[in-house]
Amino acid sequence: METENKAAITVETTINAPVKMVWEFWTEPEHITKWYQASEDWHAPYAENDLRPDGKFKTRMEARDGSVGFDFEGIYTDVQTYKLIEYVLGDGRKVSIVFTFDDNVTHISETFDPETVNSVELQRGGWQAILNNFKNYSEATV
């Protein structure tokens, strides 16, 4: 399905954990592989992350049954510890993640350019599901 709306999509969550821990869980490969999937029938068996401007990241996403998989990868354009991560995906789409926090509560707002194959609703739902998994992982690990 071709999407006609090119407006950026935003997904958000609030996590009951301090920003230092949230940042670590978001950026360190040993944590990324534990939460980066939109549904239980997918997983992320591999992640690498060079968290700095011009640094690269790659997370392998696969169906648990091995039927399909792909690499989610890009290059960082801006990194401000505990505040902001921005990157460009391989297809040129931009992503911005803003972290705001107070005491032991951290809010994440993730805004991304939509791709042109799937509907905006499907994309929003998938990215929100991944963010919800991140929230669940973070709060269970605190």
Rank of each mutant, 00 (worst) to 15 (best):
A44D: 02
V142E: 08
N49Q: 05
G92F: 12
H31R: 05
G90I: 11
G90T: 13
K56N: 15
V22I: 14
A47Y: 02
I15R: 00
S96K: 14
D71A: 15
V22E: 10
E115L: 09
I9T: 01
N104W: 04
K58V: 12
E40L: 03
T33A: 05
T81Y: 15
A63P: 02
D78V: 14
H43D: 12
Q37T: 01
L122I: 08
F99C: 03
H43W: 08
I75G: 07
E2N: 08
W35N: 00
A63D: 05
K94S: 13
K6D: 01
D78S: 12
W26K: 09
T100K: 04
T111R: 09
L131M: 12
S39G: 01
E40D: 04
K135I: 13
R60I: 15
S109V: 06
T81L: 15
P29A: 09
S119Q: 06
V120A: 09
Q128L: 11
K20F: 09
V120R: 07
V88P: 02
F134I: 12
E12N: 06
V117L: 11
A47C: 06
D65Q: 04
A38C: 00
V79Y: 12
K34Q: 13
K83N: 13
E110R: 03
E86K: 14
I108S: 06
P29Q: 07
T111V: 14
K94F: 11
K20R: 11
E24Q: 15
P53L: 07
T100N: 07
P53A: 13
N136P: 04
D113W: 00
D54M: 15
G92Y: 10
S138A: 15
L51E: 01
Q128P: 09
D65M: 05
T81H: 15
A47P: 03
D103I: 15
A38D: 00
T116A: 11
Y36R: 02
G69V: 03
N104Q: 11
G66I: 08
V68S: 03
D103S: 15
A17R: 01
E115K: 11
N118Y: 08
F101S: 15
P114M: 08
V11F: 01
T81C: 14
Y82N: 13
S96R: 14
N118S: 08
V117H: 10
V95F: 13
V142N: 10
A17M: 06
I85Q: 11
L51F: 03
W127R: 10
Q80E: 13
K6I: 01
I130F: 03
N136G: 09
K58R: 12
H43T: 09
P114H: 07
